[in-house]
Design a protein around this nucleic acid. Structure first.
Length: 428
RNA sequence: GGAGAGGUGACCGAGUGGUUGAAGGUACCGGUCUCGAAAACCGGCAUGGCAGCAAUGCCAUCGAGGGUUCGAAUCCCUCCCUCUCCGCCA
């Protein structure tokens, strides 16, 4: 959510900055609502003030044993108007709120202006795709060849966009997550957390998934008619740790790492990445989250992105990092780096991590604050990034470490987590 | 699932209809005292919003929402959460 004050003082420039990300802010409607809000609020407060005066005088009169009937009569009509106005103002406030909740974040000045993914800018490229002396296969074929990756059975059990892994492949999947967690906790200073996978609507609103993106989420009904949502990323429960909290200055930045499953309905992505496990309804991810002092959040975004990149370096997987342009950024982000890993099976770089600074956008929605240098509560900045998506890392390993005989080498960094196994071999 | 207790400011805690945004204490900040510190004493110390150049004034907030009332932290209803005991369960 954007700062209301900013909108009040300078709607036009906000609107023009939002236009860079192809969002049209209805300036006239906003101004009209604001004008009415202002008038009615001032009026309402006057009436409330009058009511308080009346009650006070009635109390005093009663204490002295005076007749209070005239006072009561006078206050009655004032209170009728008050009740009326209260309703009107509430309606306007909620219209403003609704309007505001679906406005995306403002892009940071350093973000390149652009319309689509084509306008994203490569920041760096690390590692060189190894040359294979055979035609590389994609992970689906490699996994099937090993007899360890089975989409048919997953389809029988659940439907499309689910995967089933067996034996050393399932273990590799687990190893990847363990490895990431260990690097981030032991070398990058993150605190590991375990969190709920079902969250309430307030949490989803806090990080920006609601109200705009409900169709992307899975939910389950609760007995009382309310519902809980399956997390689409650990970002939701982890960032909401600080919802309605005031963090002490000396505890910043808070750094959390969390391994969790993620559930996405992938509505609107029909026909995209239908093959293999690139786009699933359920996947694992190791997520990095930071709650930061506003003065340091951009510096920390670079750092956090570096933490994610470290994993790829250790696994010796070639990747490139791009900065998303204004038109390609997510709803809540002020700046986003995507890390894309090389997939020989597709001859392409594919997203494996997305690292963003949300500035105070999420913090404002969830009232996540810290006590600043002056002792006053101030909105914190929130950041997060995948460090990394586990399923896609598995895909990258299968494709980059494939052998002519159908086997897959285990990256050196993961061997300790695989009982020393060096190669996953196909059945003879 | 059954029975009970409870949710008040950073924390503890008083407050059952009327100048209560809220006693008292702790913590914290400033000052006096001291060579310095402690103690003692004095003062300060919530958040959000509205109007205003500002000083300041006003409004809201005692888990959330609704209701009763001229007036609600206090009464009523619904919900959420926490704790204790029993049952069940990984």
């Amino acid at each position: 959510m954007l700062d209301l004050q900013l909108l009040r003082t300078d709607v036009e420039s906000v609107a023009s900055r939002l236009a860079a990300r192809s969002f049209t802010l209805d300036v006239d409607r906003f101004k009209a609502l604001e004008t009415r809000r202002k008038e009615q609020q001032v009026q309402l407060q006057e009436l409330q003030s009058a009511r308080n005066q009346f009650s006070k005088r009635i109390g005093q009169a009663k204490a002295k044993g005076e007749d209070i009937a005239p006072l009561m009569a006078e206050s009655e009509q004032s209170n009728t108007r008050l009740a009326d106005l209260e309703k009107q103002l509430a309606a306007i406030q909620s219209q403003l709120q609704e309007m505001l909740l679906v406005v995306p974040n403002l892009p940071h000045d350093s973000v390149p202006v652009g319309k689509s993914a084509d306008d994203n800018v490569e920041v760096r490229k690390v590692g060189v795709p190894r040359s294979l002396d055979f035609q590389p296969r994609d992970h689906t074929d490699i996994g099937a060849g090993l007899g360890l990756l089975d989409f048919e059975t997953a389809g029988k059990i659940s439907g499309a966009r689910f995967a089933l892994m067996k034996g050393p492949l399932a273990r590799l999947h687990r190893a990847i997550a363990q490895f990431m967690l260990d690097v981030h906790t032991e070398e990058h200073g993150y605190t590991e957390v375990y969190v709920p996978y079902l969250v309430n609507a307030a949490s989803m609103r806090g990080t920006g998934q609601l109200p705009k993106f409900e169709e992307d989420l899975f939910s389950v009904a609760r007995g009382d008619g309310d519902k809980l949502y399956l997390i689409p990323t650990a970002e939701v429960p982890v960032t909401n740790i600080v919802r309605d909290e005031i963090v002490a200055l000396d505890r910043l930045p808070l750094k959390f790492v969390c391994h969790s499953p993620c559930f996405r309905s992938e509505a609107g992505s029909y026909g995209k990445d239908t093959r293999g496990m690139i786009r699933q309804h359920q996947f694992d991810k190791v997520e990095l989250v930071q709650i930061a002092h506003p003065s340091r959040s951009y510096e920390l975004l670079e750092e956090l992105t570096g933490h994610a990149e470290t994993i790829l370096k250790r696994l010796e997987l070639p990747f490139r990092t791009i900065v998303l342009c204004t038109g390609d950024m997510g709803f809540s982000a002020a700046k986003t780096y995507d890390i894309e890993v090389w997939l020989p099976g597709q001859s392409a770089y594919r997203e494996i991590s997305s690292c963003s600074n949300f500035e105070a956008f999420q913090a404002r929605r969830m009232q996540a604050r810290f006590r600043n240098e002056k002792g006053k509560p101030e909105l914190a900045h929130t950041l997060n990034g995948s460090g990394l998506a586990v399923g896609r890392t598995l895909v990258a390993i299968l494709e980059n470490y494939q052998r002519a005989d159908g086997g897959v080498d285990v990256p050196v960094a993961l061997r300790p987590y695989m009982g020393g196994l060096e190669t996953i071999t196909p059945p003879k």
